[in-house]
Design a protein around this nucleic acid. Sequence first.
DNA 1: CTGTTAGCGCCTTCAA
DNA 2: TTGAAGGCGCTAACAG
Lengths: 341, 341
Amino acid sequence: MQRVTIKDIARLAGVSVTTVSRALNHGPEISPETRERILRICREEGYRTNLLARSLISSRTNVLGLILPDIANPFHAALSFNIETYARELGYQVMLCSGRPGDGQIESLIDFLIGQRVDGILLSSANDQARYLLRRYRDVLPAVLLGACVPEASGIRANAVSTDNFVGGRIAAEYFHRLGHRDVVYLGLRRGSVTHTLRHGGFLAAARELDMQVTTVENPGPASSISSGYQMARRLFASPLTQTALFAASDAVALGVIQAADEAGIAIPERLSILGFDDIEYAALPNIRLSTLSRNTALMARASVRLLLELVDSDSRDEYTSKLITPTLVERATCAPPYSG
Amino acid sequence: MQRVTIKDIARLAGVSVTTVSRALNHGPEISPETRERILRICREEGYRTNLLARSLISSRTNVLGLILPDIANPFHAALSFNIETYARELGYQVMLCSGRPGDGQIESLIDFLIGQRVDGILLSSANDQARYLLRRYRDVLPAVLLGACVPEASGIRANAVSTDNFVGGRIAAEYFHRLGHRDVVYLGLRRGSVTHTLRHGGFLAAARELDMQVTTVENPGPASSISSGYQMARRLFASPLTQTALFAASDAVALGVIQAADEAGIAIPERLSILGFDDIEYAALPNIRLSTLSRNTALMARASVRLLLELVDSDSRDEYTSKLITPTLVERATCAPPYSG
DNA sequence: CTGTTAGCGCCTTCAA
DNA sequence: TTGAAGGCGCTAACAG
């Protein structure tokens, strides 16, 4: 494959490599004519700066690493789209890696990204390992946690941008209570996930205060997907249902629940209210109209990229910033007062 | 930030950099003891090979570029997930870039990726520019077109893996005909898109052969999204509807159409049959049950990565491979014989 | 305004 | 089995 280097250009233009470099980069310390001539030759020869070599010197790649558990999840897809768009506006490119906690997948991805000398990392796949990961990589490169808020109580400090999952859980419980529900279920708790633990915790806390009874269905699998929601709901619906409302760990899970309810002949929202979390695009579809808690991916994307770049530039490891974004309730058609007949 | 180099390790271990390099890479030309000692020190010091420097020498990065128009589109999300997974199995990392044709966005992304010295490119954002792009980058780096099949008739040769959109269009028309529809619409044609042109072309060709009447609604926007589908359908439904079936350019568009139909009080499939294209996950939802043409993203991902890596390794630019994957009809609930009452 | 020199971190001959 | 020297492509002093 063609490999025109700065040296070739220099030879062709009858100048030194330094001059070519200057024509390509810094400003005025070069005569306009030679500059133009050199640039013309570059164009003709199809020269393209080897960014690897440049980064080797500058020790900056202008690349950000983004680690997500599952790009096929619409929430993550939207998030990554916004992150990439915003990063590019700021002159950064994003290297996207999918990986879930467990098996050291995350570690090896981080190691790879460090090897690639990315300027920083956005990490969305965090779970309980987070504390371990954070300590391990703390001095190696800037990182901001995405979505998974690290509880202050845990004594861990981290840079993070996240939905306030705990408050989100509270909001859900309060909403159910306001509608009149007293016996409810939280479906899709994944033990390893900080996000889920908080969401569940907030739900539980508010429910307790409001004297509601909560049944928790755990998700043994690694992902919150439609099919996992479907599986869990099927099992739940196998025995007689005493609860009147269900809070799903995510919209994807909620969609699976809807499917299972449909098959089991459980009317929504008459017999069972369903509330999701995320507000993915499909939640708004006319035949779905899923009530849910929305988090603003655009906002999260901007906040996290900005925070990360501040870290990259400042190089200070002594402050930690944690931005919490409160989710907002989106009322659509899947929640209603309990059926009393 | 910490920057342990091979030189530091060498000093610490009391050996030369060459020895460290050997301990890290090639096989047996080093005594097991020194090797172990060196590796231990590397671990202790948190050494991580600078992949940039290595690539500078090897002129191989083991990174593939992937250019997609819109990762928020579920089809692309699924595709990119599969591509990334498969590439990683083969020891490659994927650098994902979103960009649409127009404004030279694609060119600048390709230029960037060349600058990063990716080993090859998967390009899904192709349109009519394809022929221009292909010629321009032909000798610079291996590329395979994804999804957008370049018509043989055009005289362009390219490596490509794509859904057979023309046949897909035919299948749609034939299916409509079999159900009894004679007056149908194709909604969402984007002129600049090879994919859409072919899909539309196949639909039109078969319809003509079968004596069906086709109304084409063009999409003036840059993307096939739910909202664009909604917009187009709204306009279409504003005047009295004579057609009995509608083929949407993609599932996302179809979902928008469903929304508009819902609002306009048009019953599906009784009054209007709707057929999509892609078979995204959400098409299967119980409340959607969209009939559609499915393309296997896993299959496409594997085929395209494999093809690209063959090109990378062989370095031969004289053969072109074009793999066409026939879509399959998935009958769900949005298509039926025309209402005759 | 332009060229020379040195070196970023690593790998690869070639000697020892 | 190990080390020294050179260079991948580029940039950043420092001279001229």
